[in-house]
Design a protein around this nucleic acid. Structure first.
Ligand SMILES: [Mn+2]
Ligand SMILES: [Mn+2]
Ligand SMILES: [Zn+2]
Ligand SMILES: [Zn+2]
Lengths: 139, 139
DNA sequence: CAGTAATTGAGAATCATTCTCTTTTAGGAA
DNA sequence: TTCCTAAAAGAGAATGATTCTCAATTACTG
């Protein structure tokens, strides 16, 4: 993911290209484990010492609205963010708070077929997210 | 769910039976749509005007730890609670914030079989939660 | 009924997030 | 290239859900 790739993404959505937006998107793509706003701020501060906390939250909101990133919820009172927009699920480690991406096309097809038949009463499904909670073998 | 049923649940877990704990559990069982702490407080205040906010959060934490209730996360910065401990999934209405329970034994079996075969690298699954995001037909 | 550890109440503190208001800036127009 | 202006960012206060602290109360044990 180059600087120009990131720039293109902003332009595609009709968003102004600002150093802050560039830096925040770059941070999300670089940081692993679905960073918090704080993780992003820490990462950015090295190269961008003047960014305001409120700006980071503002930009994150804009990026979510424009479908460049996704929010990831956990049982903790902290929002986390995800730069991967392709359909995928998450493995939540309840011990370490690590969230690992889990891509499984076969499963997605299975679920889609399942819910095509079984149509839910008066509910239109937009997105199916599987939260797999458990623990990683620590080794 | 009678008062004695609730009492029994506390005793089974070795928890002291206090009016606050009784009231909070009763509120969760009575309130629909996966109440917030605030919903619970409002409900309880009628019969129990002196309960402290901190106590409600404390008790909710104790109940979660002792597996009498579950936390339900949303994209909002508010935790919601669920008194149903049987395995089930949730329909999230993105327009109204309604969360409807979705019980589907067939689906649970399907998923369980699926993940028995496909064993994930170094991850031990404890719980699978399906978040079905969408909208209810407004009528 | 008394003793004691657990629980609660009251209110302060925390802290992630949002808001307000002023200053700066990106990007189109001239 | 320079100007203009709406949009974005900075600074810091405010918000609001949740947590914490500590003194007072209470549920259980014996
Ligand atoms: Mn919060
Ligand atoms: Mn909050
Ligand atoms: Zn992800
Ligand atoms: Zn539920």
């Amino acid at each position: 993911m180059t600087t120009d790739d990131i720039k293109s993404k902003l332009i595609e959505r009709g968003l102004k290209v600002t150093p802050q937006r560039m830096a925040i998107l770059e941070a999300i793509y670089s940081l692993k484990n679905h960073p918090t706003a704080e993780n992003i701020i820490d990462y950015i501060l090295k190269k961008h010492p003047n960014i305001a906390t409120g700006t980071v939250y503002k930009v994150l909101g804009v990026l979510v609205e424009n479908q460049l990133i996704k929010k990831v919820t956990t049982e903790k009172d902290i929002m986390r963010y995800d730069g991967i927009m392709e359909s995928h699920h998450h493995l939540y480690c309840m011990e370490s708070d690590v969230i690992k991406d889990y891509v499984d096309v076969e499963l997605d097809e299975l679920l889609q077929k399942y819910f095509e038949k079984k149509n839910l009463p008066g509910f239109k499904i937009e997105d199916i997210v599987l939260q797999l909670k458990g623990t990683f073998d620590n080794r």
